[in-house]
């Protein structure tokens, strides 16, 4: 695939959205949407059809796991990377069970974020 992958960032924290945006700018992606809560995330997801989503869990309006489930229902091929402070294993496993492809705990380092994102891109490229 020669075109850029469409990316959406979902987090209720402006600063985290900015950090993710800054760090992922080096990849072959086009940021199509950002959202600060679950509801907005789903609306923008339907409008922009991103292929990759970074998704927080603790958010106002609708929590991230519900959003994740909805997103997978809408587009089963979407690659979702959960980025959350809820670092317990059960939440991580739950996210993977619901269809997330990657899980990054907060606080994260730039390296960790980039490495996880690269793995996600590789999956997308190989059409997994």
């Amino acid at each position: 695939m020669s075109g850029k992958f469409k990316l959406m960032i979902v987090d209720d924290s402006t600063i985290i959205r900015k950090v993710i945006e800054k760090n992922l700018a080096i990849f072959n992606v086009e940021l199509v949407a950002m959202a600060a809560d679950g509801k907005e995330a789903l609306e923008k997801f339907k409008e922009t059809s991103p292929q990759i989503v970074t998704l927080d869990i603790t958010m106002p309006e609708m929590d991230g796991l519900t959003v994740l489930e909805e997103m997978i229902n809408i587009d089963p091929k979407v690659k979702v990377m959960v980025v959350t402070a809820l670092s317990d294993k059960a939440t991580g496993l739950k996210a993977i069970k619901l269809g997330a492809k990657s899980f990054v705990g907060k606080p994260f380092t730039e390296e960790k974020l980039k490495e996880s994102f690269q793995n996600l891109l590789n999956q997308l490229k190989s059409g997994e």
Binding site: S13, T14, I15, T58, A85, L86, S87, D88, A90, T91
Partner: peptide, 25 residues
């Protein structure tokens, strides 16, 4: 100022979110 406000919320969120590892779901 918006970033600063946002950051203090994020710090609180991350600190309490991380302790879930110890306290459970």
């Amino acid at each position: 100022s918006p970033e600063i406000k946002d950051l203090i919320g994020e710090v609180a969120n991350t600190i309490s979110g991380n302790v879930r590892q110890a306290f459970g779901t």
